[in-house]
Design a protein around this nucleic acid. Structure first.
Lengths: 274, 274
DNA sequence: CAAAATCGTCCCGCATAGCGGTATAGCGTA
DNA sequence: TACGCTATACCGCTATGCGGGACGATTTTG
């Protein structure tokens, strides 16, 4: 009886298309394209223009997008930050890491970040930078690739075999041509991590950027990873072993820090809708 | 009939209900309820169970919600953080404030935060805490009310007359019974701000919490406000004037710091979908 | 140990909500 | 004036999301 002509992916009756597309619109913004017109959004998402108009209209009504007063174009409203807040709050243990991170950032004259995995990339959930450096650290919520960063490599190395397999599988389907290289890189990282206790990345993510990475688990058993790095002018290749040891120390202190009971009994004082 | 989750105009052909409802689902999570079952979500959003099932299914497929392995309940995926990243990146000037904020936090032995307005509340976009204090600062993305916090009051005082009118109007329609008090409070705050250059809030948001607030504008002409405060045991009422002066100094330094050109020519190295 | 309450999933008829092509009006530019 | 770009409006179609109810499996309760 399959007169319905879509066998491949199989039409999913329980899939709300409008929702998925609207999220695609929200996700199509990037630091490069902060403000976009309907046409640009249509191009960025690949959706027809009238559809975009409807979705954007809805997003404006709900307050997640606003029209820029002068340019008349559309931009993400800071309200989207509130969507992520419960996530941040659920990983509050990272706050005990903040002073340690700041200390190491000052010592190394670089940047120290903490991130977790999403798909094939790492999402930064905390960062601190040396006070003297003018460069910006990547901000909370930004993504960096897994296979070419010390953070991502350390994460992979510390992941369980099941998760590792899943990651590799995802790499395989995502970009088969690079898969061989990626797998070799990650396995090498795993080996390095087992031997030294940290991963090093010398100019493989961006030229001129060196870093070390170490994995930890957050309070809710979520795997995460620190990195410490910066431009080669500040973080020399020779200094990486020392930083690696310091970062593993940091991770150990963080890991063993007793956190239970430090939470003040703060009820959620957040405000609701308006 | 079909209740529209959005009041106001009657039939809006261009309103994608599924999208609005899905966002409502995402927004229904809070630090108190990090993991929810379909039934809980139905209760929290007021939507029928089968509708929730469809929406959640879509959100799981798109990766914004995941099923907690052990409990089997649903939780926000850290991926939602990436939605807010462009917003953070567009306000990168706040990063120059970070060292100043940390310094003041250490000095005051309290917490220094920066926030912007959304509706009738303030959303925190940056925070730093004294290294010795165990209490958590409210995290990035969290909301605090406007009328009862020094940050919100300072914001209101520094807002233009048009925005002030809009805010008051919103208060009026949102909670008419409290409107009189709110307006009196905000006008008093305005007066205080004009005289002293900062607003003080002594135990009016939470008992036992004192704070001062000062407004600034971010690089993109977005109005924002700092606060500096903490529990009364650390931030005494007597110390507030001194902190107020320091905070206005901080704001002035931040405001006059030349920021243009400090941005390194960093292309967006973020990773896309997977 | 049974009763009660949830849990998530499935089903299905229905009406409409969302779709997208096309057409239009307003700006700024070439 | 003709063009490219905005955003908005229109409109017929049907795929699509809707929601009540039933279902079996678990878990909690008494």
């Amino acid at each position: 009886m399959s007169d319905r002509s879509n066998p491949g992916a199989g039409k999913d009756r329980a899939f709300v298309n409008g929702l998925a597309r609207g999220l695609k619109v929200l996700a199509s913004f990037s630091p490069d394209r902060i403000r976009m017109s309907l046409g640009e959004l249509a191009k960025a998402t690949g959706l027809p223009k009238s559809t975009i108009a409807r979705l954007v209209h809805t997003l404006v009504e709900t307050g997640y997008i606003y029209v820029c007063p002068d340019s008349g174009r559309y931009s993400l409203h800071p309200k989207v930050l509130t969507l992520g807040y419960p996530v941040m709050a659920s990983m509050d243990k990272r706050l005990v890491a903040l002073p340690m991170m700041q200390e190491l950032a000052d010592y190394s004259r670089g940047t120290v970040s903490l991130g977790i995995r999403d798909g094939l990339s790492m999402i930064l959930i905390e960062r601190s930078r040396d006070r003297t450096v003018r460069a910006l650290p990547l901000d909370i919520g930004s993504r960096i690739p897994m296979e070419t960063t010390s953070m991502g490599q350390a994460y992979f190395a510390a992941a369980g075999t099941a998760e590792q397999a899943a990651i590799l599988e995802q790499f395989k389907t995502h970009d088969p041509s690079r898969f061989q290289d990626v797998e070799r890189t990650l396995r090498a990282a795993e080996k390095e991590y087992a031997e030294k206790g940290y991963c090093t990345a010398v100019g493989i993510w961006e030229d001129d950027v060196n870093a070390v990475g170490v994995a930890v688990t957050l309070s809710n058993d979520v795997l995460a990873a620190f990195n410490c790095g910066g431009p080669a002018s500040r973080i020399t290749e020779d200094s990486l072993p020392g930083l690696g040891v310091r970062l593993t120390d940091l991770a150990r202190h963080f890991q063993t820090a007793d956190w239970v009971g430090q939470l003040p009994p703060r009820p959620y004082r957040g405000v609701q809708t308006p």
